[in-house]
Each structure stands twice: as C-alpha cells, then as structure tokens.
Simulated scan of single mutants.
Amino acid sequence: MALLYAPEASPSQRHAPNLPAITRITAKSRYGDDPQRLEEAMDVSKTLAEAWAAVEKANLPEALQQVAFKEAVALLGGDGTGSQAQQDHPPVKKAPASKTKTKAAKVDEHESEVVDATTFFEAVAGETGVPVEDLEQLFYLDKGAPRINLTSSALGTSLKGKQVNVAVLIAVARHFGLNEDETSAAIIREECSRLRCADRNLATNMKGLAGIVLSGGSTKTLKVRPAANASFVEKVKALLHPGAE
C-alpha cells in the first residue's frame, strides 16, 4: 500500500514568514485607514518578500540566510541603509572646504597666500595716496610679506622713534597691501629685531599710535583705523623726503 506524504520543507521554507500578511496587519494597526501610509508599508513588504525569495533561491545554508537577507534588502530597497559592511565601515566624510577668506600672507606660521609685488604696491598706493615709486623705495616683499628697505640708522635717532616708524609702516602696509584686518605684534617685533631696534619697551611704544589700536592679552595685535593714513604718509615723507613740504 503506497503511503501518501508531503515532502519535508526546507529550512528556509519552514521559517519563511508571510511578510505581506504581517505587514498589512501591522500597518493597519499603526496607520488605520491612511491609504498613503498603507501603500508605503506594502512597498516595504514587497521589498522584504523579494529579498527573502532571493535568499531561498540561492539555496544558502541556514546559518548564512540572515546575513544574506540583510544584504538583499539593502540592494533591493535602495533606502540608503547600505549593506552590513557599509554599516560596519561607513564612508569617511570629507571636511567641508573652508569658506574663510585668507586675510594676508605672513612670514610666520599664519602664512597661506603670497601677494605679488605689483598688486601689493598698487593697493597701498591706492589707499594712502603715496606714489608707487616711493613705496618701492621704502619696502620690498619677502615671500609676499613687506619688509622695510632702509637701514636701522635711517629709521630715526632713538629706539623708540625707530620702533614707532616700523610699527606704523608695517601695520598700514599689511592692512592695505595684504587686506589684513589686524597685524600680530610679533611681526612688528620680528621686523624690529631684523633692523636691530627691538628692546623690552617695544610693546609699550606701540601703544597710543595715531590711528592704530594695540589690543589683546599675551598675543597682541595692531588694528589700523582711518586716522593711520595721515601718520603713514607723514612718516614716508620724513624718511624719504626729509625737509620737503
């Protein structure tokens, strides 16, 4: 007598859920009769069902089916969740490019741009009214940063006078020529040291300059105000054209 029996279901078939039915019941209880929400839920159900069918078709060992199912959902869904490998190792985001405009080229650790001589001298001349020829006689550029093209003895007869001249000339030149909002006092000290006119009174002597504000704590800066123009022009004339009216 022949025995009638149903063939044993595969492991995947034994555990395959009725996804559309489950999703419909869950969505109905959560969203009520909202047709749009129900439709979206059924779309998800369709994706899950297709993913499970793909796993079954691959005839994978039961131990691998869960991982394969997640990968299939990620590939079919296109919802930005990504695969398991992508979740474990998300792509590294690039830092956004800085939108801060570089203020100036400097000879210290802040240096980031180099301004050409023509641009520099024309900018200073345009703002101060000092002829380019005079500026080229008074300054030269070292890696885009202005240096005073005079000897220490030509800057004045006292250390204080030399320091004041250097501070005004460099601060104003950098402000207009390099589009610099403020100049580090360390740059002034460096130039005074190069010209052998620096001493411990430099910070004190930079206070109260006409049109230039010295501010800050341990890291001081010089900010140029409109009144500094007249002081700059006066010093250029005194250094290059002494006695001229």
Rank of each mutant, 00 (worst) to 15 (best):
L3D: 13
Y5K: 07
Y5G: 10
Y5I: 02
P7C: 00
A9W: 00
A9M: 01
S10F: 02
P11C: 02
H15M: 09
A16L: 11
P17Y: 04
P20V: 01
P20T: 03
A21T: 08
I22R: 14
R24C: 00
R24D: 09
R24K: 06
T26N: 14
S29L: 15
R30W: 10
G32H: 02
D33E: 12
L38T: 09
E39P: 00
E40M: 13
E40L: 15
D43F: 10
K46G: 14
T47F: 03
E50M: 09
A51I: 03
W52E: 08
A53M: 05
E56K: 04
E56I: 03
N59G: 10
L60W: 01
E62T: 03
A63M: 10
Q65E: 15
A72Q: 08
V73K: 01
G77W: 05
D79K: 11
G82L: 01
A85T: 07
P90E: 01
P91L: 07
V92C: 07
K93S: 11
T100F: 13
K101M: 13
K101E: 11
K103F: 06
A104T: 06
D108R: 00
E111D: 15
D116Q: 12
D116F: 13
D116M: 05
A117N: 03
A117S: 14
E122H: 15
A123D: 08
E127M: 13
V130R: 12
V132M: 08
L135W: 06
Q137F: 00
D142L: 10
N149T: 03
N149K: 13
T151N: 11
S153K: 15
K160T: 11
A167H: 04
L169G: 02
V172M: 13
A173D: 03
R174Q: 14
G177M: 08
E180I: 05
R189A: 12
E190A: 15
E191P: 13
R194F: 00
R196L: 13
C197W: 03
M206Q: 12
L209E: 02
I212Q: 08
S215M: 05
G216M: 05
G216D: 11
G217S: 09
T219P: 04
A227Y: 00
A228Y: 11
N229S: 07
S231E: 12
E234A: 12
K235P: 03
G243A: 06
A244M: 05
E245D: 05
